[in-house]
Design a protein around this nucleic acid. Structure first.
Length: 428
RNA sequence: GGAGACGUGGCCGAGCCAGGUUGAAGGCGCUUCCCUGCUAAGGAAGUAACGUCGUAAGGCGUUCGUGGGUUCAAAUCCCACCGUCUCCGCCA
């Protein structure tokens, strides 16, 4: 959520920033107008409340002195004021609710340094590593779903039978590889990040905190009867971990990581990327997360990016890093770096990590503040998140990249400690 | 799911039954100062967040789980919801 004070003080700057995303700015004007009215009404209401409070004190005193008649007169006045106060309160509440619901649908302002542009074509490629299209041999140019089926490590057909399209099932060595990737993703960040295993079903408020609701309700699974949402990413419960709390500056940065399943309805992408693991409704991911002060944010953004990229690099996968254009940054982010791996079998770059700096946008929604050690009062924290390792697409890239001419797959060395002696998935 | 108890400031904990200078006693913690050679002990003062008005000092308002209601006036009375604990049931 954007700072209402900023909108008041410099609406043009806010609108200019939102325009860089290609987002309509009419709601900012609407917010301004409602806010002006809301404040006028609140002030009036507060004055009446103060008056009622004073009268009530007098009434109490008069009753004590036995002057019931004088008290009765004041009570009548106060009753009238009370009615007025009630009406004003109702109006103020309505305005406040209207402002909030408008603001909840406004995206974060992109950072000034974020590249211009509205689509993914405008993303800036920062670097490409280990990529040479000509270096891939014929045996590597086979899609992972074919390989998976041949080797009995991926069973999409049966997953679809039990859950519908865009679900997958890993089997045998394939399931083991998945488990290795998760442990690999967690262990390499154990030096600085606290491992958390949060709930994967959360309340509506928790989803609002990250910005996934109300705007993106269609993308999330919702359990009607219990009014719970299946998380689309561990970012959701991690953001809520300290919701409503005031942290000490000394505790920042607060680094957290979590492995969870992630659930996405992928509404609007029906028929797109439906094969194999390119896009699935349920997948495993190791998420890296941090709360920090505004001053620490820049360095933390780089740290998470570096950790995510190192995890990919150490697996020996061709990859590139993109600096997302304003229009391609997700709602809560101010600046986002994507990491994509190249999967030779499907001949595509696959997004495997999105490292976002959300400034105080999520902190405002989830009400996470910190107490600066110098000075008084409280400030909103900054929040950052990035996939430490998104399993299915990395799994796919490994299976395709490491396929040998005989159809077997050798395992990246970095995973050997997690595979209990398994160094390859043999051909059948 | 059933029965009972309970939700007060950074923490502990009074106040609620008999509604009225209670933003809330007392304690712990924390900050500053005083005293003592250092420490310990002791003394004094301070110690919430948010909104709004104001250049500021400060004023006003809101917040005792949440939301309603009763009343001139609610931490205190009533209702609903959420949560915690204990017992029972069920269960990996």
């Amino acid at each position: 959520m954007l700072d209402i004070k900023l909108i008041r003080n410099d609406p043009e700057a806010v609108k200019a920033a939102l325009a860089r995303r290609g987002e309509p700015t009419s709601s900012i004007d609407e917010v301004l107008e409602l806010d002006t009215r809301m404040r006028a009404i609140s002030t009036e209401r507060d004055d009446i409340r103060a008056e009622v409070k004073q009268i009530s004190e007098q009434v109490g005193a008069l009753h004590k002195d036995g002057k019931a008649d004088d008290a009765a007169a004041l009570q009548t006045t106060s009753r009238e004021l009370g009615d007025k106060e009630k009406a004003l309160t109702e109006e103020a509440n309505e305005l406040q609710a209207a402002i909030r619901s408008l603001l909840l649908n406004v995206s974060n302002m992109p950072a000034p340094e974020a590249p211009d542009g509205l689509t993914e074509d405008d993303n800036v490629e920062l670097r490409v590593e280990d990529f040479d299209l000509a270096s891939y041999a014929e045996h590597q140019r086979v899609p992972h779903w074919g390989i998976g089926e041949d080797l009995g490590i991926l069973d999409v057909d049966r997953a679809v039978r039990m859950s519908g399209s865009m679900f997958a099932m890993y089997r045998g060595a394939g399931a083991r590889l998945l488990r290795a990737l998760i442990n690999y993703g967690l262990d390499r960040n154990r030096d600085a990040f606290e491992e958390v295993r949060p709930p994967t079903m959360v309340k509506t408020d928790t989803m609002v905190g990250t910005g996934h609701l109300p705007k993106f309700a269609d993308d999330a699974y919702h359990l009607e009867r219990d009014d719970l949402w299946a998380i689309p990413t561990a970012e959701v419960p991690l953001t809520s971990m300290v919701a409503g709390e005031i942290l000490d500056e000394g505790d920042l940065p607060l680094r957290l990581m979590a492995h969870t399943s992630c659930y996405r309805r992928e509404a609007g992408s029906a028929g797109k990327d439906t094969r194999g693991l390119l896009r699935v409704h349920e997948f495993d991911k190791v998420e890296l997360y941090a709360f920090c002060t505004p001053d620490q944010a820049q360095a933390m953004h780089m740290e998470i990016l570096e950790r995510a990229e190192n995890a990919i690099r150490d697996l020996g996968l061709a990859h590139r890093v993109l600096d997302l254009a304003c229009g391609d940054i997700s709602g809560a982010g101010a600046r986002t770096y994507d990491i994509e791996v190249f999967a030779p079998g499907v001949d595509r770059w696959l997004e495997v990590s999105s490292v976002s700096w959300c400034t105080d946008f999520q902190a405002r929604r989830a009400n996470v503040r910190y107490r600066p050690s110098e000075g008084k009062g409280t400030e909103f924290v900054h929040s950052l998140n990035g996939s430490g390792l998104a399993v299915p697409r990395v799994w796919a890239a490994i299976v395709e990249t490491y396929r040998r001419p005989d159809g077997s797959i050798c395992m990246p060395e970095a995973l050997h400690p997690y595979l209990g002696g398994m160094t390859e998935i043999p051909a059948v």
